[in-house]
Design a protein around this nucleic acid. Structure first.
Lengths: 222, 222
DNA sequence: TACTATTTTTAGATTTGTCTAAATTAATAA
DNA sequence: TTATTAATTTAGACAAATCTAAAAATAGTA
């Protein structure tokens, strides 16, 4: 129906993420925080998005994304994550370097370009951070991730993603080789501060709760 | 000094092209035509570009691009042409399909991205249309091209580019396999309308002057 | 319930890039 | 050289996205 502007795409993406991964209700101020803008700007934009039927919005009552809006958001997320795969796998960037570039590339409009990029990359199901890539219809694999901080001593796990996507955190993990796909086992969990001793092959690392809380894992099945 | 907006980049690119490949002086209306906008909008923008020292501009006296402006323009042209190579060589688009996508991709800002893309593509010197790709400093190969319409009977030539970049023309050439890099020989030139009989390997084509005037060639050296 | 604090919206401005219509300057031709 | 035509610039307005400050609505609490 309508063609979203880059800004509208960014708002819809933020609203989608807040709706799904966030815990709190999607209100004006949470959007303002995540977009690094003011509540007044958000209110203006919400009216526009509602006019175009991408969200349901009632003054003072918060926001709910519509099917149409979700479709737009998933399209952008698909582009973002595919470009991230391109940047890491093909152009050999590190996983903590690609986010900003993908933020620009995701707004390149051609659907055919994304279709071919997807094919060229071998139709990847996850991006370098372990986040699932929606297909053309918006569907994506959602495997049962849980927090490394909830792991148990002696158990083996595969890292599947992160909850903190900041460059600082990703760089930190890279130092220890803690990347999606890597197999780890928990050697010991300290009673005092819930920090843990982690094993990758023969190497051992000491990990604070702060860090383990932001790592997602799934059970290792041999 | 200043960071150009996408719009400013497009104006500088247009002015650069008019300065070099165009015959007429670079005046307000020629820019308006090539940008598909009004003379009034151009005047507004020229003042901005002059303030940022990318052009020299005196009211009613036309425009001359500065060193700084040329540097910006060549940077954009470099990105545009590298993305075109990516789209044709890697994603297997046809040469007449890539222009519009490259117009969007050229505004993605990361210099490091372009550096790596260039490396990944094998540091190509020409884009799919035979246009030279500037290096990081703005230098590019300028081999002595001339018009196919100025070619001589019996001579062998290599196609190096085109002067008409429209989709319609490029599609037309593609039908005959007349792409940059292809070797052709002129079998006959008709006295009456200057149309020519062209040979690629064993195939023969009849080409109007209209078409041959828009094809660039260089001498074949075995 | 009534008061206060917080959140949200409105009002009014700003910036960028655009437009149309009017005014001005330059170019052309009798 | 003067009159007419063409090109260019100015003036004023608009749309998108943003901001600050003020007003209005909601939520929390005594």
């Amino acid at each position: 129906m309508y063609q979203p502007t880059s800004t509208e795409e960014n708002y819809l993406k933020a609203i989608y993420h807040l709706s799904n991964t966030g815990i709190k209700s999607v209100n004006t101020s949470s959007i303002a925080t995540s977009m690094e803008t003011t509540a007044a700007s958000v209110t203006d934009m919400l009216r526009k998005l509602a006019n175009k039927e991408w969200i349901n919005y009632e003054k003072y009552k918060g926001v709910k994304i519509t099917r149409k809006g979700e479709k737009v958001a998933l399209g952008i997320i698909r582009k973002h994550r595919l470009w991230e795969v391109f940047l890491t796998n093909i152009l050999e960037f590190e996983w903590d370097e690609v986010h900003h570039m993908a933020e620009e590339l995701e707004h390149v409009s051609s659907e055919e370009l994304i279709k071919r990029l997807d094919k060229f990359l071998g139709q990847p199901k996850f991006d370098p951070h372990g986040d699932p890539i929606p297909d053309q219809t918006g569907k994506m694999e959602l495997h049962d991730k849980f927090n490394l901080s909830a792991g148990e001593t002696g158990e083996k796990y595969i890292i599947t993603g992160v909850t903190d996507h900041s460059t600082l955190f990703l760089k930190h993990l890279r130092k220890y080789g803690l990347l999606p796909g890597v197999t780890v086992s928990i050697a010991e969990i300290m009673d005092y501060d819930k920090s843990m001793l982690l094993k990758i092959n023969k190497d051992k690392f000491h990990l604070s709760l702060e860090v383990s809380k932001n790592i997602l894992i799934k059970k290792y099945v041999s």
